[in-house]
Amino acid sequence: MTPAIEVRGARRTFRVKGAMFQPDKHVVAVDDVSFAVPVGGVLGVVGESGCGKSTLARLILGLLPPEAGEILVDGQRVLQMDRKARARLIQPVFQDPFASLNPLRRVRDIVGLPLAAQGGMSSAEMAKRVDEMLVRVGLTVEMGERQPAQLSGGQRQRVAIARALVLRPRIVVCDEPTSALDVSVQAQILNLLAELRRDLNLTYLFISHNLAVVEHVATEVAVMYLGRIVERAPTDTLFHAPEHPYTKALLASVLTPEPGLGVPDVGLGDSLPDPSNIPPGCRFHPRCPVAIERCASVAPATTPRNAGIVECHLVPTIAA
């Protein structure tokens, strides 16, 4: 079957003006990334702040062209699709709801916009769909009359989710959809996303920093570091037998609700990588607690492993 999302060798950099008298720099956001998400699957994407997750999301949504590689959604090149058809197929829920919601419009107009853009629906029908959606994400119809600034952060996030789902798309790209929510409301939204997925066979790309959430919703998880996927595995495998040292560090950094334990130092050091100056060899080697000599000069190959991949010299090659 055609995968819902297929990314082949995608690459995207950004040019950043150099400081005075300095040459311009190239920030590598996504570097030769390939993967596929089957219909009905949920790929969780985790990784360091700034490693390219949102850029990957924008490539998949067709909001940004890749410099190299191909991106197919439902078997079609996303950049070549008709905009209306694309909107019915794939929708985003973005990270920063304040930046992505027009502050001057009423909530119900924001949620109804994708419907209006499609055309051909009576305003009564549109109003009904909007009301249904508002209630479905846990807002009230009355809140539809407000502007985004009159809502709390979590309420705004629900507006963004309602807007994404109002067209009933088949693929939803969620970029930190619940990070602004308290755990109870977060659970309600995640349960809603899970229910919709089950009922409508939706496919999600799900970016989150909350590893427990990813563990709950994802069927497979990709771990990104400096623009590359360094490990990808089925969810259970990734959480119970992580292999890449960066994945291990991520899992060790999770703060469980146990008072008195303090904040762990997982030994990655305090300086984060510079995406305009990617280290040679394994890009994680300057911070890797178990690096060997070879890591500084030779980039590890993409090794098939446990129905996924790992990029690390220390992980032996075993056929999947």
Binding site: H209, A249, S253, V266, L272
Partner: peptide, 11 residues
């Protein structure tokens, strides 16, 4: 720290 990954959050 909600917009940050867990390692940066810890830092």
């Amino acid at each position: 720290t909600t917009a940050l990954d867990v390692t940066v959050q810890a830092q």
